[in-house]
């Protein structure tokens, strides 16, 4: 163990005091979108594409990061009012240096998240009264585990020496969230708030705490056993500054607001979904980072 500690110590020594760690951070993870409704468990695969332009003002470092994530996700009900969710993402991403055209791949298991929610309010099942408007409020939280690789070699030409372009964050983070849904006839609204409290990873790096908020409206059109649910909404992400070896890196964190358009298709036990997010207002990494449009699709089996 002692040798490991020494190793980290030397690793820290070789890291420059000040480095430009700009890069699209894909580590947000565990967002929900519009969850398949009903008191049913599910399992499926989500595919997410998002990209960033980094170091916008740099002659040599300007880059384009493309994050592609395939994610297994599932929901289970161990008890009536308790839902447990798990997210196992696998990334196949890459960074392209715009000046040279050089691309650096990033592939592997990312950070796994597990969440549990208690259904605090649910007028669908709380009483037998027929409500005009039905509410459901889920309160819960969970943990994001450091299952993705986060170590990089400062002395390698092929590694991206940037904590933001790794498969994981290296830290065990705690997440708290609320998911609220209201339904009136075929119309509904969904809102969720998720706050992530980070911790320092063994490299001495700590990502800023992160707040994700989203709100959307949807309409459910049914045709027999099939139904389609178009939806639209707003998604906001905010993150604090990262801390490297005790020093705050101001060129990190920020906010981005996205408009969201999507549709869910339900075919018996099959649920297909697509969602497109376009940034409308953002200020990330002191304006040195630009988030581009994102696309999420999923195929999920209800049981």
């Amino acid at each position: 163990m002692k040798t490991y500690h020494l190793f980290y110590f030397f690793l820290l020594l070789t890291i420059p005091v000040q480095a430009c760690d700009l890069c699209g951070c894909s580590n947000g993870g565990s967002f929900f979108g519009i969850l398949p409704q009903g008191h049913r468990g599910f399992m499926g695969v989500r595919y997410r594409y998002n990209s960033y332009h980094s170091h916008l003002n740099s002659l040599n470092l300007s880059s384009h990061e493309q994050f592609r994530t395939a994610e297994l996700w599932g929901r289970f009900y161990p008890a009536k009012r308790l839902q447990v969710m798990a997210f196992v993402p696998y990334q196949f991403s890459r960074q392209t240096i715009l000046k040279t055209g050089e691309t650096i791949p990033l592939r592997g298991l990312s950070d796994v998240t597990a969440l549990a929610h208690y259904n605090l309010i649910n007028t669908f099942m709380d009483d037998s009264v027929v409500h005009t408007v039905n509410h459901s409020l889920l309160v819960g939280g969970g943990v994001k585990l450091p299952t993705g690789r986060y170590r990089y070699d400062e002395n390698s030409l092929s590694d991206v020496a940037n904590p933001n372009f790794q498969l994981g964050t290296g830290s065990t983070d705690w997440i708290g969230n609320l998911i609220y849904t209201a339904r009136y006839k075929n119309w509904g609204m969904n809102a969720d708030v998720s706050y992530r409290v980070t911790s320092t990873n063994p490299n001495g790096y700590r990502f800023g705490n992160r707040l994700n908020t989203s709100a959307s409206v949807f309409y459910l059109a049914s045709m027999g056993s099939k139904s389609i649910m178009p939806n639209a909404g707003v998604f906001v992400e905010q993150a604090g500054h990262d801390i490297r070896s005790g020093e705050v890196n101001k060129q990190t964190g920020g906010y981005a607001t996205y408009l969201n358009l999507g549709a869910e298709l339900y075919l018996n036990k099959l649920n297909l979904g697509v969602s497109y997010r376009k940034p409308v207002s953002q200020f990330l990494s002191e304006g040195e980072l630009q988030a581009n449009a994102q696309l999420t699709t999923h195929i999920t089996f209800l049981f």
Binding site: L120, I121, T123, H135, L137, L178, Y180, A182, A191, V193, L211, T213, A215, V234, V236, Q238, Y255, T257, S281
Partner: peptide
Amino acid sequence: ITNSVVRIFLLALVTSATFVS
């Protein structure tokens, strides 16, 4: 209780959206 929880929740949502814009 249901309504007030919901109201506080919505208020927080709107406030945070206003703040960042």
